[in-house]
C-alpha cells in the first residue's frame, strides 16, 4: 500500500496555477525531498497536503484514506505533522513550556477539567510534559529545556520546531526548509536528526534548497518547476536529468 500520495493535485490562485497536476507518492520510512527553483510551488504543495489550503482539484490520500477535504488539525490527528520555515515561539516562556502543547491533540481534557482540576487533567498534563521532555531529548535540546525560547539560536529554534512536530506523535513529518538560515556544521547536525527520525520509523518529507545536503540525504526526490512535476527519482537520476538542469540553469546551458 502507498503511504501518502497525491493524485492530479492542482491549486490555482486566481489565474495563477501554483501547483499543476502533481502526482507524487511518498514512500514509508524514507527521506523524500521536494526541490525546485523559487516560486515553483513547493510550499503550496505542502500547504495542500497538510490541509492548509483546499486544492482546486485532485486528491491527497494518506494510508488509503482520502484526506483532501479535512482541515489541518484533523490531518494532524491522523499522524501528519509539518513545520514552517519560521516558527513563532512564545519567547517569554521556557522551551519546555512551548513544546508541551504539541501533545495536546492526543489529550481530551476540556474547560471543565481545567476549572475543577480533575484527575484526568493532571494525568494528561503529566503525559504532555513527559512527551515534551522525550522529544526535546530526541532533538538534542535537553540542556536548554528550561531556557526562555527567546534566547535560543536559529538552529535551536529549528530543533524546537522539529520537537513540536514530533510531540504530535506523527507517522510522517513535512519539514519546510529545515536548514534555511543555519551554518553548514549545523546543517549536518539537522541532517543527522532527520536520519534519526527515519530510524524511529517516522517518514520524512522535506523542502530544501541546500543541494549538497539533499543529494546526500534523500532517498527520493521530486522536482517542481512552475507548479509542475518535471522529474522524480533517486538523487543520481535527478542529477543527470536534463529537464532539471534546464530548470535550474536555464535553457541555453543544455545545448
Amino acid at each position: 500500500m502507498v503511504f501518502l500520495e497525491t493524485k492530479n493535485l492542482t491549486k490555482k490562485f486566481g489565474g495563477n496555477t501554483a501547483v499543476n497536476n502533481v502526482d507524487f507518492t511518498i514512500e514509508k520510512g524514507k527521506i523524500n525531498a521536494i526541490i525546485g527553483p523559487n516560486g515553483a510551488g513547493k510550499s503550496t504543495f505542502f500547504n495542500l497536503v497538510s490541509g492548509f489550503h483546499p486544492p482546486t482539484s485532485g486528491q491527497v490520500i494518506f494510508k488509503g484514506k482520502d484526506i483532501t477535504k479535512l482541515p489541518s488539525n484533523k490531518i494532524a490527528e491522523l499522524g501528519v505533522a509539518r513545520t514552517f520555515q519560521t516558527t513563532n515561539l512564545f519567547d517569554q516562556a521556557t522551551v519546555l513550556d512551548n513544546v508541551i502543547v504539541g501533545h495536546r491533540l492526543r489529550t481530551k481534557s476540556n474547560l471543565f477539567d481545567a476549572i475543577f482540576r480533575t484527575k484526568r487533567l493532571k494525568q494528561e498534563e503529566k503525559q504532555c510534559r513527559d512527551k515534551a521532555i522525550e522529544v526535546l531529548d530526541f532533538v538534542g535540546l535537553t540542556d536548554v529545556a528550561y531556557k526562555l525560547a527567546g534566547s535560543l539560536s536559529q538552529e535551536e529554534k529549528k530543533r524546537v520546531a522539529f520537537a513540536l512536530g514530533l510531540a504530535t506523535d506523527p507517522e510522517i513529518i513535512f519539514l519546510d526548509e529545515p536548514a534555511a538560515g543555519v551554518n553548514p556544521d549545523e546543517t549536518d547536525g539537522l541532517a543527522e536528526l532527520m536520519e534519526k527520525m527515519v530510524e524511529r520509523g517516522i517518514t520524512v518529507c522535506l523542502i530544501e534548497h541546500k543541494m549538497s545536503m539533499i543529494m546526500k540525504l534523500a532517498d527520493k526526490i521530486m522536482v517542481l518547476s512552475y507548479g509542475e512535476k518535471i522529474a522524480e527519482g533517486t538523487p543520481e537520476e535527478i542529477q543527470n536529468n536534463e529537464a532539471v538542469i534546464k530548470a535550474y540553469l536555464g535553457g541555453s546551458a543544455i545545448a
Binding site: 492548509f52 488539525n73 494532524a76 516558527t87 515561539l89 491533540l105 512536530g165
Partner: peptide, 14 residues
C-alpha cells in the same frame, strides 16, 4: 498557542 501562531496551533492538531 493560538496567540503565538494560529497556523502553527492548527498544524499541531488544535
Amino acid at each position: 498557542a493560538i496567540r503565538n501562531s494560529e497556523d502553527l496551533a492548527q498544524t499541531i492538531g488544535i
